Computed example of a mutant assay.
Amino acid sequence: MRASHAYFLFVGTLLTAAGYGATFLLTEHFRALGGSEIDTSTTLGGAMAGTLIGVPLVGWYAKKLKAARMGAMGAVSVAAGYGFLALLTTLTPLIALAGFLIGLGWGIFYLAGPMALSERVTDQDRGFWFTRFGAFQMAGIGFSPIVAAALVEHLGLSTRGAFGVIAGATLVAAVLLLTFEALSPQASQARAQTSNWMRALPALLSSRAIYPILMVGLGACVFSGMLTFQSSLVRGTGLEAGTFFAAYAVTVVVARFVLAPMINRADGDRASVVLLALMILGVVTAFGLVYGVPVQIASAILLGLGYGLVYTVIQTQAVNDAPPEHRSAALTWFVIAYFFGIFGFPVLGGWLIVTVGIAGFLAAVLAFAVAEMALALLRGRQTTRKPVSA
């Protein structure tokens, strides 16, 4: 695979990830239509259902359809979801269908994108390429709500119009992913892996891989809670949600390039505990958002360093801790657990904000962060410590 070809995948990844990042504006969109966080929860509940279908579809059909093509199909599904939202002028139960299409597409892409890259690189180069892939993905997630907000605030677009732009961007992503497949075909000796991931579950439950699989779900609850409802967290404080998104995105992208190699060489158990401690501090700091922009930026940086770096550490643990014959299944369950948190927690989060307020909501987010730390400590006591390799 030529480096120039990889950038078709990377830019396609950035634009597809922008589709997920734009979900952070759902609350503002529904408020403009007279709704609330409950409508955000409904939409993201549909998205969670979509991801739980999209992820296994990749495992079943990637070998036949090719991973990059499936990634393009996922981007088209995301575009359809946002196009549907852009066409709706009133609140309707159909917002769950729009969420389903977004979740289906993101679930397909989230597994197919890395798979398409992995099929084309050597074991020695995989860490290098995955780091860059992750940086483009996080850039899309983090900067998308900033760009969308700018379209609304400075160019006079409605949130419906901004979602229309997102739909167009994800269609461009689909074209780029198809171009990547055409320019850099899969090596003849490579095979897209299929896995009996359901049958592998009992074996994974009895292995140490279950710890990072559960941990990624808990961490995703923290991530989705802090970003999806950031506009709710800063309401009445004079702060802008875009400030948090920008600080978080810059932190993660820079950290992935600068600090990730050092983290990958460190002891995985110790690294995960330190990074999770930073994530917990980021949530605790959010309780003080009323004290201004410096506190908001500090919270974003701590979350970006903690969550942004620990993800790759525990992803490696999930694969390495699994029985060799079930490593593909471990990665599939890892992604499923991630999406349970990403789209599942907002279903609870919207209800918490409406019923118990911001403080109660943040307390729930903090509880998930502490639970992930507890699992990291428990795993560390039951495994021989060794360096994590990307």
Rank of each mutant, 00 (worst) to 15 (best):
A6L: 15
Y7T: 14
F8M: 08
T13S: 11
G21C: 10
L26E: 02
L26I: 09
T27C: 00
E28D: 15
F30I: 09
R31P: 00
L33G: 02
G34D: 08
G34K: 08
E37A: 14
I38P: 00
L44K: 03
L44D: 07
A49L: 14
L57Y: 05
G59D: 08
Y61Q: 11
A62R: 05
K63S: 13
A68D: 07
A72G: 11
A75D: 06
V76M: 14
V76K: 03
A80V: 12
L85D: 00
L85G: 04
A86R: 03
L88W: 03
L88R: 01
L91E: 04
T92L: 09
P93F: 03
L94D: 04
G99P: 01
L101D: 04
G103Q: 01
G105L: 00
W106C: 10
W106R: 00
G107T: 07
Y110E: 15
A116T: 04
S118Q: 10
S118D: 09
G127K: 01
A135D: 02
I146A: 09
A148P: 00
A150M: 11
H154F: 13
H154K: 14
R160F: 03
G161A: 06
F163I: 09
G164M: 05
A169D: 02
V172C: 12
A173I: 06
P185E: 12
P185T: 08
A192K: 00
T194W: 02
S195Y: 05
S195G: 12
R199K: 14
L201I: 08
A203P: 03
L204G: 00
L205G: 14
S207T: 05
L214M: 14
V216E: 08
C221N: 13
L227R: 04
T228D: 02
Q230C: 13
R235C: 00
G236A: 06
T237W: 08
T237F: 06
L239K: 04
A241H: 01
G242E: 13
G242Q: 11
Y248I: 09
V250M: 07
V254T: 10
V254P: 02
A266G: 05
L276K: 04
A277S: 15
L281H: 01
F287M: 10
G288H: 10
G288L: 13
V290T: 15
V290N: 10
G292D: 12
G292C: 12
Q296W: 02
S299H: 07
A300T: 12
L303T: 07
L303P: 01
G304T: 07
V310W: 07
T312P: 13
V313P: 04
Q317Y: 10
D321C: 12
P324Y: 08
S328E: 14
W333C: 03
F334H: 03
A337N: 02
F339H: 15
F340S: 06
G341D: 01
G341W: 06
I342M: 13
G349D: 07
G350Y: 02
G357H: 07
A364Y: 02
L366R: 10
F368N: 08
E372F: 05
M373H: 06
L375K: 05
L375F: 12
Q382T: 12
R385K: 14
V388N: 12
S389G: 13
